[in-house]
Simulated assay, not measured.
Amino acid sequence: MGGARVGLDIGATKILGVVVAGDGTVLAQAREQTVAGPDGVLASAGTVLERLAEAIDGPLPPDVGVGVPGIVDRRRGAVKHAVNLGLGGDWFPLAERIGARAGALRHLGASPAQGHFGTGPAQGRVGTGPAQGRVGAGPPRVTLENDLNAATWGAHVLSGADDLAYVSLGTGLAAGFVLDGVLRRGAHGAAGEIGHVPVDPAGALCSCGQKGCLELVASGSAASAAWPSRDVPPAEALFAAAAAGARGVVVVGGAGGGPGRRQGPRRARSGQAGGQSGSIPMELAVSQKVSLLTCQPVEVRTMIAFPA
């Protein structure tokens, strides 16, 4: 597997892991629900790494890339203020900790008989006994990056666009920016942390400790609460409903219509996909220059509002 690499996307809801060959071919995938807190995140990531090693039936590649929400110090491989992961204001050495777990798999291989990280009869046996040095010699090399910065750079590479904004509606809300072909992280690594910009001083309390943060009304979680969907991601279902003229959604602006042209109102039943009654006040604004699905240059300016 020359040139193969491991990728981990650590989110507040799930951790997705892949092993890719040097030519970009996906060799293995694994997914695990995220458990919040330092120990929980590491345990969830460790389970994903184990499943990847089992899937390729051998040692993991030495190069591991990790995307994580929050403020990331790439030099020290640490993250802080990843509030949706339960990681607070102290730097957490995530790259080092994941490297230790990936290194254990490189030495022990993928055999389930040797136990999970920190459990079963193999606990504490890394580097001892007959498995020592058997496969995957050498420590892993872990690169830590903010997840949206990593996704934004991927969109830049695939689309060829040198100026773009990438907006992600996940558990929270964040953005990434490439200007003049350069990824812009900001002086303190917080350029894309738009989800925790307070927009309503009288709003609900956010997990970050502030009130009325943008992600409370414009995120995947907010879209899920306002427009539940069982079969597709809530944000995708919401935009599809708006495009189809569903009742209960007010669309302002739109592709080709300019930000000030009203494409509604469109009245409707609230929560039609999930059977909820009543309506939820919400405004969701998205402006991006690359389709998150096709990475083809597009121009999108849409506001979706739920009447109170």
Rank of each mutant, 00 (worst) to 15 (best):
A131W: 13
S207P: 09
L8H: 02
L108Y: 14
A285M: 14
A174P: 07
A137G: 02
A223I: 10
Q276C: 08
C208T: 03
P112W: 06
R74P: 08
G256Q: 10
G3T: 06
A137Y: 03
A150C: 00
G115L: 03
Q114L: 08
G129M: 05
A235W: 09
I280T: 09
C206K: 04
T25E: 14
G120E: 05
V41A: 00
D39Q: 12
A131S: 03
W227F: 12
G120C: 01
S207I: 13
V83P: 08
L173Y: 11
L183H: 12
A308K: 15
G138D: 11
G264N: 01
Q33A: 11
T152D: 01
G278V: 04
T152K: 02
E32F: 00
Q29S: 10
L60S: 07
A30H: 01
P38Y: 01
G103L: 06
A165E: 11
G129Q: 01
E193Q: 09
P61H: 09
V182F: 13
G127S: 00
S279D: 15
G127Q: 06
R51E: 15
E283Y: 12
S291L: 09
G172M: 11
R31V: 05
R5Q: 12
A137V: 03
W91C: 08
A100Y: 13
H107R: 02
Q288C: 09
R97I: 02
M282D: 05
P201W: 07
G118S: 06
I15R: 04
V252R: 10
A187C: 14
A55R: 11
A30F: 05
Q132H: 12
A151F: 03
W227V: 01
G7V: 08
G258E: 06
P93W: 10
Q288Y: 15
A28D: 00
G88W: 11
D63S: 03
Q272W: 15
G181K: 03
L183P: 14
N146S: 01
P228H: 08
G209V: 05
G46R: 00
V167P: 03
F239H: 01
A305K: 14
G7F: 08
Q114Y: 15
P62L: 12
R247P: 15
D57G: 04
Q272T: 04
D180Y: 13
V249T: 04
L105C: 06
I56Q: 11
P140L: 00
G186I: 06
A28S: 00
G136W: 05
P112S: 02
A218F: 02
V66K: 02
S111G: 10
L87Y: 13
T143P: 03
R101S: 01
L183K: 11
Q29W: 09
A122T: 03
T13H: 06
A187V: 13
A4I: 15
L85S: 04
P130F: 10
G7H: 13
S168I: 07
T143R: 07
G254D: 02
D9A: 02
V217G: 00
Q272K: 07
E32A: 03
A174R: 01
T128R: 06
